[in-house]
């Protein structure tokens, strides 16, 4: 588990915010507002987008060609957010997203990145031994499936569109969305009926 911040870091944050506030650059209220806004994002948004793409071919096409527009259609404000790319899994290709250089993550749709996504182990290993990393999530893929690791290095943020699992025929969007986990949207897990 991540260690709690040390006392000098807590003190530095306090001094920095006080100094910025004294200069009229930021206010505590602005920071609190921003935080409240950030807290609202959750993987449920990404899950709803996937569920809709599974049931609505026109939406699927939009999602794959313009992820940002597809997110806006679900009521998410993407103003100022980086472009969203969506990676389509097939019977022969599975995508896994990592950011080896920092921690780029589609935050507008999935919320804060989890600690494991930001960990040195995930960042170094996902790109080199993806099958071993997937196995740690219990995700085993046959050799016939290409694993395509996507290293999120620049201006896009990437989300996986997993395959709809068998056994979900006739399910409505809400029920489909309930099986699309954050892990599936990053590519470390698969949705299960």
């Amino acid at each position: 588990m991540a260690a709690p911040p040390r006392a000098e870091s807590l003190a530095l944050l306090e001094r920095l915010v006080a100094a910025l506030e004294a200069k009229g650059i930021v206010t505590e209220a602005e920071i609190a507002d921003r935080q409240a806004n950030t807290d609202k994002a959750s993987p449920e948004t990404g899950a709803r987008m996937v569920a809709k793409a599974w049931t609505d071919p026109a939406y699927r096409a939009l999602l794959l060609s313009d992820g940002k527009a597809a997110a806006e259609m679900m009521g998410v404000s993407m103003a100022g957010a980086p472009p969203l790319g969506v990676l389509e899994d097939t019977a022969t290709r599975h995508h896994l997203v990592v950011c080896t250089l920092c921690s780029c993550y589609p935050r507008a749709l999935l919320g804060y990145p989890p600690n494991w996504y930001k960990s040195f182990a995930y960042r170094s290993r996902a790109v080199r031994e993806p099958r071993a990393v997937l196995a740690e999530w219990g995700t085993m893929l046959p050799d016939s499936v290409e694993i395509r690791v996507v290293d999120s290095t620049a201006d896009f943020r990437w989300m996986v569109l997993p395959m709809r699992p068998a056994g979900t025929e006739g399910w409505d969007e809400a029920r489909l969305a309930s099986i699309v986990t954050r892990d599936a949207l990053v590519g470390v897990a698969l949705p299960k009926a």
């Binding site: 588990m1 250089l101 040195f120 182990a121 960042r123 290993r125």
Partner: peptide, 17 residues
């Protein structure tokens, strides 16, 4: 950090905090 051997045998801790 991509592919660095120093993390080769480090399991990814599934930290959800």
């Amino acid at each position: 950090l991509g592919g660095l051997p120093r993390f080769h045998c480090t399991p990814v801790e599934h930290d959800e905090v």
